[in-house]
């Protein structure tokens, strides 16, 4: 069978979701953000939420998320996305409201807004990309940076006496009564991508059903910040990040 016989519209089983537009994404080659964007766009399309989904973009690498997924977006100040999402969901309860935040945005400057939104049980979804580093500003230490990990601001490796311990946000959010679903996923293999997608789907359903706050942490790579190739970053993530940030559901009420 010739390639021309296979490559026909009726034989297509996978393509870029329509809501992920043709804009060239500014992310570095191999960045996990792109995979998560794709999953979100697919889900919004498959779940028929195009006119209901409202995204809140962060400050950090995903600051331009609104340029890539064709739904309504609000760009937040650094760390404030859960506060904005709170108001949007309370004022428009029939919408599916989600934030998309990195670990610099959420785990450092935005911890207060995150914990309190979850504790109030706001019916929002928090997508939390944890790659253990500040990507956009050039690879500085984040609260989630592993001990010993070299960054621009921990050039000899993160030390407890200087920098304290890596912060596990999902455990914190799972501990408050208002959260209904907290899970930690990754997108480094085809199987992981499928699992992450069903986790985010469940979170979106929770928002529509008014069950409380859902947080989906995606342990991710930052190959530019980690100074590794995308494939090596995935390996390093599995060998190092997963020990501190283990995969799986932390809470599912």
């Amino acid at each position: 069978m010739e390639l021309n016989d296979i490559i026909k519209p009726e034989n297509r089983v996978y393509q870029k979701p329509r809501l992920l537009n043709d804009n060239h994404m500014h992310y570095c080659p191999g960045c996990s953000h792109g995979v998560v964007h794709k999953i979100i766009a697919e889900l919004i399309e498959e779940m028929g939420l195009e006119d209901k989904a409202i995204g809140i973009a962060p400050v950090g690498c995903a600051v331009f998320a609104y340029n890539y997924i064709d739904i309504d977006w609000i760009e937040a100040a650094h760390g404030r996305a859960p506060a904005i999402a709170t108001a949007v969901k309370r004022l428009q309860p029939t919408k599916m409201v989600f934030t998309y935040q990195g670990d610099g945005d959420l785990a450092a400057i935005g911890t207060c807004e995150t914990i309190h939104a979850a504790n109030r049980g706001e019916n929002i979804v928090i997508i939390f990309i944890n790659n253990g580093i500040y990507g956009m500003t050039g690879g500085q230490m984040a609260p989630t940076t592993l001990l010993g990990m070299k960054t621009a601001t921990t050039p000899y490796g993160r030390r407890v006496d200087l920098n304290g311990y890596p912060l596990r946000i999902s455990e914190l959010v799972a501990a408050v009564d208002g959260s209904c679903y907290v899970t930690r996923q990754s997108v480094h293999t085809p199987a992981a991508v499928r699992k992450a997608k069903s986790a985010i789907k469940k979170a979106f359903e929770n928002s529509m059903a008014g069950k409380g706050t859902s947080l989906v942490e995606i342990v991710s790579t930052c190959n530019s910040g980690w100074k590794k190739s995308p494939a090596d970053s995935n390996k390093w993530m599995v060998e190092n990040m997963f020990a501190k940030y283990p995969m799986g559901d932390l809470k599912n009420v």
């Binding site: 069978m1 089983v13 792109g34």
Partner: peptide, 25 residues
């Protein structure tokens, strides 16, 4: 090696830039 493709979509799933379309017969 196009003759080896089994249309499993693994490449498309992990592609961060959604640049792979998969066809299957």
């Amino acid at each position: 090696n196009p003759e080896s493709c089994i249309a499993c979509q693994s490449c498309a799933l992990v592609c961060p830039d959604a640049c792979i379309e998969v066809y299957r017969v």
